[in-house]
Nucleic acid binder design. Structure first.
Lengths: 177, 177
DNA sequence: CGTCCGCTTGACTCAGATCAAACTTGGTGG
DNA sequence: CCACCAAGTTTGATCTGAGTCAAGCGGACG
């Protein structure tokens, strides 16, 4: 399903943009003129708080679209930053809108994709409403299937909204059993 | 926008169902045959955990649709319960799908609505990723505009994922300033 | 008028945030 | 090949915000 969508998006005229790690793709408040399909690398949607803390709204990997939720809105509601060196396909918003309006199959796939995003975001909120690290980790694993390789644990800690240390301790405790 | 959608939904043939408080509209895993438009009352989408604790995924008031994210899926991914006496308009899923496919305006409105849901769910996750009650309350108020009337505070506590007591204390502390 | 529910406040306890210091590991450049 | 650096991991110590239990208050409503 998602592949079908990506296929169709690739058929549109586009430009390509390459960003360095930590470079911004767009900022909260910018007028939405383009949508971005990730070709290589990884990005994150973040919101920065007054005190400088950042919250990750979403992590986006190869094949995902930034920012789906903005196709019908005037301005971006968060920042997008490259997590790694990042290659994105730039598609003009009006072209994507035209495709949505003229191609029934695409419209369905797009809506279905949005529905999935709703579910995922609600799941994330559900995980974050759990109180202990242990419960959150269980829920995270229940969703994803397995624990990732060692270098990615810190990332999981951010996903489930705890400090890295707390997660390491939980993992250590489980290892001990 | 949302009103336009509701208007169009009302134009479809439908049945009406009335539920008592705490009665279930559907359960997680049920096959999706219908969508529900709330005519009167209030419902909540919840997920029940092994230990019996319930997590509110979403609260739904008059005019909202349950469960948007399921139009394109086979089974419900959570439970829906009446918060009050509840009147819903029952619309068959295949009719709604047909409308999505044949009516461009509706398709746009629907996708736009889903985008909004994505934003809201992500915002909720963002709030829940904050660590102190004070920060969460600030974020909640920043989103909604103001604090609700006194009888609704307990609800807010659930929204921001803390105990009622913790919220009452935070409110008391603010009053003191 | 009694019952229910939301609010209020106190006391206690604890999970996890934070700070800190050491150790792996992979990559980079000399 | 090794020194060095950056990032992630590990573990300890400390502190605190908030969950929980508990008891009392007040308004709404049958």
């Amino acid at each position: 399903m998602i592949m079908i969508m990506v296929e169709q998006l690739r058929s549109l005229p586009h430009a390509v943009r390459i960003l360095r790690k930590n470079q911004y793709l767009f900022h909260q408040g910018d007028v939405v003129t383009s949508m971005f399909l990730i070709e290589a690398g990884e990005a994150r949607l973040i919101r920065r708080h007054l005190d400088g803390r950042t919250v990750i709204l979403q992590r986006a990997l190869v094949g995902s679209v930034l920012a789906e939720a903005s196709l019908f809105s005037e301005s971006y509601h968060c920042d997008a930053v490259a997590n790694t060196r990042l290659t994105v396909r730039v598609i003009r918003r009006d072209q994507m809108k035209a495709m949505f309006e003229n191609d029934k199959a695409f419209a369905s796939v797009w809506a279905s994709h949005l529905s999935d995003e709703v579910r995922q975001a609600r799941l994330r909120a559900e995980i974050l409403s759990l109180k202990t690290v242990s419960e959150r980790l269980d829920a995270w694993i229940a969703d994803k299937g397995t624990m990732p390789a060692k270098g990615y644990w810190k990332t999981v800690a951010q996903d489930i909204g705890t400090s890295a240390e707390a997660l390491y301790r939980e993992i250590a405790a489980r290892r001990a059993r």
